[in-house]
Simulated scan of single mutants.
Amino acid sequence: MKFDTPLVRGRLIKRYKRFLADVVLDTGETVTAHCTNSGSMKSCLEDGAEVFLTPVNDPKRKTRFTWEMIRINGNWVGINTSNPNKLVFEAIRNKEIPGLDNYTRVTREVKFDESRLDILAENDYEQCAIEVKNVTLKDGDFATFPDARTERGLKHLHTLIRLKKEGYRAVMVYVIQRMDVTTFAPAADIDPQYATALKQAAENGVEIFPVQARVTPEEIKIERVLSYVFIR
């Protein structure tokens, strides 16, 4: 997934009110950027760190920039939660994820009764319901999710379990937007209910794909599918 417009470089001053971040650009101008990540962003926040922003030319927007990534310990971490959906959609359509590379029709934002899932992938013999989550939290060598309690994420797991029982293939894709981890695990210390539900989902046939992506100021590119464990 290549960025449509050149990104703007700066340094993080602070993130506040969950959805806002003040950044001083290389030009010396201080701007407020929109932060799409509503979580705690633990392990990917550092005042003064290098960041990149997307300029937004929309008179209806209060902020003129969207925060895309931050450099932590020499590694880029993608924090824009809207990018993983687009990344996975393109990757499935282009047959770039092993195990999810045999679909001929791919649709975004599909409603299943009370829930809306990110992707429906289809071929002549099966339908695959897919939910995508963004992962930024690092704990040692582990990438973990979530970084804050998530009722919405829990609802999506229950929907996938139900769809699997109804005959769909059901898949959870965790997009890990950082390269300094080797294994995925649920963050049971942060949200034990979600961790339990994820294990139950796997036991009921929901497949787990922790997809690691390399983030640069030019593009976000899927590198590999990581292994996962339920207990660290």
Rank of each mutant, 00 (worst) to 15 (best):
E207I: 02
E203F: 07
G140Q: 07
N204V: 02
I190M: 12
L154Q: 06
A129Q: 02
P210C: 13
N134K: 09
V229H: 11
I190F: 11
I190Y: 08
A202F: 13
T136A: 10
R116D: 04
I176Q: 07
I130D: 03
A197H: 00
T136Q: 13
G205T: 05
E122M: 04
V225D: 12
Q193K: 13
A202R: 08
T159D: 04
D141A: 13
V132T: 07
A143P: 04
E218C: 01
I176R: 09
I190P: 12
D139Q: 14
R152W: 11
G167L: 00
T144S: 09
T136I: 15
V211N: 09
N134P: 07
G167T: 03
L137Q: 14
R214K: 15
P210E: 10
R214V: 01
A201E: 04
K155A: 14
R116M: 14
L137F: 15
Y174I: 13
K221A: 14
Y228D: 12
Y228H: 14
S227Q: 15
R149E: 10
V215C: 03
M172C: 05
A121S: 06
I222V: 14
K164M: 02
G167N: 06
K133Y: 11
T150N: 05
F209L: 08
G167F: 01
L157N: 04
D191A: 07
L120R: 05
A143I: 07
R152G: 00
T183N: 10
N204D: 09
P217F: 09
A185P: 10
V132Y: 05
E218P: 00
A197C: 01
V173M: 06
I208T: 08
Y194H: 11
F145I: 07
E223Y: 01
F230D: 06
K155E: 15
V181Q: 03
T216I: 00
D189I: 10
